[in-house]
């Protein structure tokens, strides 16, 4: 069964292991996505009918002013929140209305998410933080550790593998978080203002790391940024204002 024929319906368990970059199928498709918080007079429409597609291997920057709906959009795509209406299709499979147990499996195996505040577990070393999601998939410890080492080496953190987050700089912590998001070879990687808390030099290193992963591993990346300078790392740009796309260009 090709990914195309599955488009628009709820996935079965097998669908959740769909291969990335299926021929002609967007890595990610968003259809008329809306998210409203609250109800009645106090309702806030954070997203208003957003639609776009992201091709496999693409790297997309989502920009907009504070409150424009960037992070809200990313959370819907990263399956951390459920939209009020509309659809999110991952490799052609509608993942919008899945139960939390299914969403968790997708977050674990098919999606990577990088938070602005690094979000590493303080009691684990960098290496352990990276391979934790791999352990959850049932991968043997040795293999998980090896994969974590490879990613840390790739992100120039090989010599920091046994350090705890408190012993790392902000930039290093964010790169560990990126490695963690990549450990289960996700189809799409989401990064919510990954440089928001970093100085210029660290920001540059983090963005370079993301583009390197995109180029070398072919992972599709969507990142949110408020720094106009960072659009140069993206192949495509989406600009949001008041929950709507006001600009989308390559």
């Amino acid at each position: 069964m090709s990914a195309l024929t599955r488009r628009g319906r709820s996935p079965t368990r097998n669908d959740l292991v769909v291969a990335p970059g299926s021929l002609g199928v967007p890595a990610l498709e968003v259809r008329d996505l809306s998210r409203t918080y609250g109800a009645g007079d106090v309702a806030v429409r954070a997203l208003r009918g957003v639609s776009f597609q992201v091709e496999p291997g693409d790297i997309v920057c989502i920009m907009g002013k504070s409150g424009s709906g960037k992070s809200t959009l990313l959370r819907q795509l990263g399956l951390l929140d459920a939209p009020t209406s509309g659809q999110v299709l991952l490799s052609g499979v509608d993942v919008t209305r899945l139960r939390e147990s299914r969403r968790r499996l997708l977050r674990l195996g098919h999606l990577g998410y990088v938070f602005q505040e690094y979000a590493l577990l303080p009691e684990l070393t960098a290496e352990e933080n990276v391979y934790l999601p791999s352990l959850m998939t049932g991968t043997p410890l040795r293999q998980s550790r090896l994969r974590a080492r490879e990613l840390l080496e790739m992100l120039d953190l090989g010599n920091r593998a046994r350090h705890r987050p408190s012993e790392l700089s902000g930039g290093q912590q964010q790169r560990v978080a990126i490695a963690r998001a990549m450990v289960n070879r996700p189809t799409v990687l989401f990064a919510d203002e990954p440089t928001g808390n970093l100085d210029t030099e660290s920001s540059e290193m983090v963005m370079t790391a993301l583009t390197r992963l995109n180029e070398e591993l072919g992972v599709t990346i969507l990142f949110v940024s408020h720094e106009s300078d960072e659009r140069r790392f993206a192949k495509n740009l989406i600009v949001l204002r008041d929950g709507e796309i006001v600009e989308a260009k390559s």
């Binding site: 990263g78 968790r104 977050r107 674990l108 998410y113 938070f115 979000a119 959850m136 963690r180 998001a181």
Partner: peptide
């Protein structure tokens, strides 16, 4: 928040 992060990266509620 740590628990939220664990859940966000796919760690099960059971774990």
């Amino acid at each position: 928040r740590t628990i939220g992060i664990e859940r966000a990266i796919g760690i099960s509620g059971l774990a």
